[in-house]
Amino acid sequence: MAPVEKALSLGMSLLSATLAAALFKRVWKQASGQDDAPDADDLGRGWTEILVAATIQGAIFGLVKAAVQRAGAQTFRSRAVESRSKR
């Protein structure tokens, strides 16, 4: 992987994490009516609530990560094909 691709990949990863965190916060607030999702070490919350929050969070993070990586891969591929065809 070229240095430019590595830098862009890192930037896209940071962007996807930020997007996923904001999306999870919004989904959790709508689903539970609470502003903050429970942490695993929050002893004031039950197992079910913590595991449901973790499941939703994992699904959202996985979805956003896959979508951003896929879009990046397609962009890199299309640019590589364009640059080869210009030669």
Rank of each mutant, 00 (worst) to 15 (best):
A2M: 00
K29S: 03
K29F: 02
P38K: 05
T48N: 04
R77W: 05
D39G: 03
T75C: 02
A40S: 11
L10G: 11
A22Q: 11
W47E: 05
V52Q: 10
A54G: 09
V81E: 12
V64S: 08
R79N: 13
S9L: 05
W47P: 06
Q69D: 14
F61G: 02
W28R: 08
T18D: 02
F61M: 03
A53P: 07
P3R: 10
A80C: 01
A17N: 12
D36S: 10
E82R: 15
A71C: 11
K86R: 15
A73F: 03
D41P: 00
K86L: 15
E49Y: 04
V27Y: 04
S85E: 13
D36G: 02
G62K: 10
R87D: 14
I50T: 13
P3C: 00
S9V: 00
K65M: 11
A20P: 00
R70P: 00
E49D: 07
A73I: 03
V4Y: 03
A53Q: 08
R84N: 08
Q74K: 14
L43G: 09
A21N: 07
E5D: 06
R77C: 02
S32E: 07
A21W: 08
D35V: 09
V68H: 04
E5W: 06
R45A: 09
S78R: 09
G44I: 00
S78G: 00
L23W: 12
T48I: 10
A2D: 08
G58P: 05
A37C: 05
I60G: 01
G33P: 01
L14D: 05
V81A: 13
G44D: 05
A71K: 14
F76Q: 14
K6D: 13
R79F: 11
F76M: 12
S78F: 08
Q69T: 09
Q74V: 09
P3F: 02
R45K: 15
A7W: 04
G44S: 07
D36F: 07
A40W: 01
L43H: 11
A80V: 00
A37N: 05
W47A: 14
Q30K: 15
L51F: 06
A59M: 03
S78W: 10
A20Y: 05
Q69P: 01
G46I: 04
K6G: 04
K6C: 02
L8Y: 11
W28Q: 04
R87G: 15
L10H: 13
Q57Y: 02
V81F: 01
R77Q: 13
A17F: 10
T18K: 10
W47F: 08
L8P: 06
F61L: 03
G62I: 06
L51D: 04
E49Q: 14
A22P: 00
E5L: 03
S13T: 15
L43Q: 15
M12V: 10
G46L: 04
A17M: 07
A31G: 01
D42Y: 09
A53I: 01
F76E: 12
R45N: 05
T75Y: 10
W28T: 01
D42N: 15
A17Q: 15
V64M: 06
F24C: 06
A67R: 12
E49H: 04
S83C: 12
L15N: 01
K65R: 10
A73H: 11
P3H: 04
V27T: 15
G58A: 12
A21T: 11
